[in-house]
């Protein structure tokens, strides 16, 4: 019942991006992006290599400083809404030979809410163990992180974001280099998050699984090509605009 109601009302906007432009040197990586992401969607950001997908996420999260534009999370600037947002970086972005355990990495998800100086206690540990259980990694909690497989490392990162108990999740290629079992495990977690009315934004590479996994999609190639429900806009026209003429090679439906 409530679902029908929200569909009729104007949906709540979880993330709003206005005129965002990012450049590393003189050439823009992102050009004048306007984006509205409604609350409760599971959204894929797709586009070719170098289209600025990771950059978009990093700029929204303030890791990169944009040249122009603004980002708001539920109508307020990101710096005031940090506790509503969780980030899952690409797993290749850290050194997995770091001397620490799986549980310890997940506990880092609680650091933000703890703030400066305060140490995590029993409550944080319990939350971290629960997150590990959700991703099916509880038995690996004391494992040195260098001894985890790629898929397991990805799950640890996911658990670290889950611990934050945020409303919006940004994930940078969570399916990269994981096997089919892990991919299914991860997508089930993402779907559970959406069911809890969380907003999940995922940089995604595999076009074939977009209609199956996601309900919302943004096409990106330096400029925003299109954004909206998968069933409305995931079509040949937009794929061609994003990927160029050879889109049929990359997607066979």
């Amino acid at each position: 019942m409530s679902e029908i109601k929200t569909q009729k009302e104007k949906p709540v906007i979880a993330v709003q991006v206005d005129d965002l432009t990012v450049a590393y040197n003189y050439k823009p990586v992102l050009w004048d992006i306007d984006l509205e992401i409604p609350e409760g969607v599971l959204m894929a950001i797709v586009g070719p290599n170098g289209a600025g997908k990771s950059t978009l996420i990093k700029a929204i999260l303030g890791i990169l400083k944009p040249i122009a534009g603004s980002v708001s999370i539920y109508g307020k600037p990101y710096s005031k809404q940090r506790d509503l947002v969780a980030y899952v970086p690409q797993k290749g972005s850290v050194d997995w030979d770091f001397p620490t355990t799986a549980l310890d990495v997940v506990m880092m998800g609680t650091y933000g809410s703890l703030g400066w100086i305060k140490r995590p206690g029993q409550k944080e540990k319990k939350a971290s163990l629960e997150a590990l259980e959700k991703v099916g990694m509880l038995s690996f909690k004391n494992r040195q992180i260098s001894q985890l497989s790629g898929g397991q490392q990805q799950r640890i990162f996911l658990a670290r974001a889950l611990v934050q108990d945020a409303s919006i999740y940004f994930m940078d290629e969570p399916f990269q280099g994981v096997d089919a079992t892990t991919e299914i495990a991860i997508i089930n977690i993402l779907k559970a998050l959406r069911k809890a009315n969380k907003t999940v934004i995922v940089v995604h590479h595999d076009l074939q699984t977009v209609p199956e996994y996601f309900d919302w999609v943004t096409f990106l190639n330096v400029k925003k090509i299109a954004t909206g429900p998968v069933k409305d806009i995931f079509n040949d026209d937009n794929l061609t605009k994003t990927y160029g003429i050879n889109y049929k090679v990359s997607i066979q439906k």
Binding site: S93, V94, L114
Partner: peptide, 19 residues
């Protein structure tokens, strides 16, 4: 200690959670 640890392991992430 906690801040040093998270900075050493994952600087970008440390930034997003407000450090």
């Amino acid at each position: 200690w906690k801040e040093f640890k998270i900075l050493l392991f994952d600087k970008d992430y440390a930034h997003t959670i407000g450090f």
